[in-house]
Computed example of a mutant assay.
Amino acid sequence: MNRTERFYKIDQMLQARGIVPLEAFLHELEVSRATFKRDLEYLRERLNAPIVWDREAGGYRFERASAAGPKYALPGLWFSADETYALLAAHKLLAEIKPGVLAAHLAPLQARLAALLEGSGHGAGQIMQRVRILSVGRRRVKPQCFAEIAHAVLKRRRIEIEAVNRARNETNTRIVSPQRLVHYRDNWYLDAWCHWRRSLRTFSLDAIQRVKLLTEPAREIADAALDAHYASAYGIFSGKPKERAVLRFSPERARWLGAEIWHAGQRGEWLPDGSYRLTVPYADDRELVMDILRHGRHVVVEAPASLRRAVTEELAAMTGLYRNPPAGRS
Rank of each mutant, 00 (worst) to 15 (best):
G76V: 03
L77A: 15
L77P: 08
W78E: 10
W78R: 05
W78D: 09
F79M: 12
D82E: 15
D82R: 03
D82Q: 13
E83R: 10
E83Y: 09
Y85P: 07
Y85G: 03
Y85Q: 11
A86S: 15
L87H: 02
L88D: 07
A89M: 14
A89V: 08
A89R: 12
A90G: 15
A90N: 02
H91R: 05
K92G: 11
L93F: 05
L93R: 14
L94H: 09
L94A: 13
L94I: 15
E96L: 15
I97Q: 13
I97Y: 00
K98R: 14
P99I: 12
P99H: 08
G100P: 12
L102D: 07
L102W: 10
A103Q: 13
H105T: 10
L106E: 06
L106D: 04
A107M: 09
A107L: 10
L109V: 15
Q110Y: 06
Q110M: 07
Q110W: 02
Q110R: 11
A111T: 12
L113I: 12
L113T: 03
L113Y: 01
A115V: 01
A115H: 07
E118N: 06
G121S: 06
H122I: 05
H122G: 02
H122L: 10
G125R: 11
Q126N: 07
Q126Y: 09
I127D: 11
M128K: 15
Q129H: 07
Q129D: 15
Q129L: 09
Q129R: 15
R130N: 14
V131P: 10
V131W: 04
V131A: 14
I133C: 14
I133G: 08
L134P: 04
L134W: 04
S135D: 11
S135P: 03
S135A: 12
S135V: 04
V136P: 02
V136H: 15
V136R: 06
R138Q: 13
R138E: 14
R138A: 11
R140C: 04
R140I: 15
R140S: 10
R140V: 13
P143S: 05
C145M: 06
C145F: 04
A147Q: 03
A147C: 08
A147M: 05
E148N: 04
E148T: 08
A150G: 01
H151T: 10
A152K: 01
A152F: 00
V153K: 00
L154H: 02
L154A: 08
R158P: 01
R158H: 13
I159A: 05
I159F: 02
I161G: 00
I161V: 11
E162P: 02
A163M: 09
A163R: 09
N165T: 01
N165I: 00
